[in-house]
């Protein structure tokens, strides 16, 4: 598997870290880094909690939230289900709801256990193979990335900094060079700043589109994503003027 992803597939772009590979189509499962040396075989993949299925592979990097991945595939399967039997139709409906709530920061204690119950019922009692394998995206991500589920539920934190409702964009005043790129690019006009004035994001206006994060020049890297911690208060107005350069010129 490592060969397929890193040699044939060219590995993870942009110097990001590999996180997991999803195999077998929507009802397959996610396999983490430490299982990457597995040969791609029917039994090996099944034992790892995934499957050969369609034979497809989706390699994911560190920016991917595994709870959101589970939510995405389960959501797909709620439409694919034929809707005849209860464990699959109703089970997936509720699994999708609970997973969505978790990614929105509305997860509650007990949600993991509830999902496990629904998964068991679907696996054991569904009429056909679709329902029996449908909980895989959840079961495999829970198996290998349980801490991500817990972080979302207890700390309201998305470790991959991916779930919109759980992250905030913040400009590090130490790093901002007031280049204005993010301010001009922000579609919500949520960034306040000017020439030589450190830029600040108005959290109430921000739609978390991520544009500022993308456009802030890499050499500054001033825009950061925060999750699970409060956004620091904006720096006081009288400290917002960038003086360093002028000092150096003196």
């Amino acid at each position: 598997m490592r060969d397929i992803i890193f040699t044939i597939g060219g590995g993870i772009p942009n110097g990001k870290k590999f996180k997991a590979v999803q195999t077998g189509g929507p009802s397959g499962g996610c396999i983490p880094e430490d299982k990457l040396d597995l040969p791609v075989g029917f039994d090996e993949l099944t034992r790892a909690g995934s499957m050969m299925g369609s034979g497809g592979m989706i390699a994911m990097d560190e920016d991917t939230c595994m709870v959101d991945v589970a939510r995405y595939f389960i959501s797909f399967l709620t439409d694919e289900s034929c809707g005849k039997c209860v464990p699959c139709r109703e089970g997936l409906r509720q699994m999708h709801r609970i997973l969505t709530n978790i990614t929105k920061g509305q997860g509650k204690q007990g949600d993991i256990e509830l999902l496990e119950e629904l998964a068991e019922t679907a696996v054991e009692a569904s009429l056909c193979a679709l329902g029996k394998s449908a909980p895989n995206p959840f079961l495999s991500t829970l198996k290998y990335f349980r801490e991500e589920y817990e972080a979302h539920i207890t700390e309201k934190r998305c470790p991959a900094l991916s779930c919109k409702e759980l992250i905030s964009f913040y400009i590090d005043p130490e790093k901002c060079k007031a280049c204005g790129t993010c301010r001009k690019a922000c579609p919500a006009s949520a960034i306040n700043g000017d020439k030589k004035i450190i830029h600040i994001i108005d959290q109430d206006k921000c739609t978390k589109c991520g544009t500022c994060f993308e456009v802030c020049p890499t050499k500054f890297g001033a825009v950061t994503k925060l999750s699970g911690v409060p956004v620091p208060a904006p720096i006081p107005e009288d400290q917002r003027t960038i003086k360093k350069k002028s000092k150096e010129n003196e």
């Binding site: 109703e90 119950e117 068991e120 019922t121 009692a125």
Partner: peptide, 12 residues
Amino acid sequence: RIRKTIIELLMA
């Protein structure tokens, strides 16, 4: 356990 879950799902 399975019956309980099915009933709960339908009670929704």
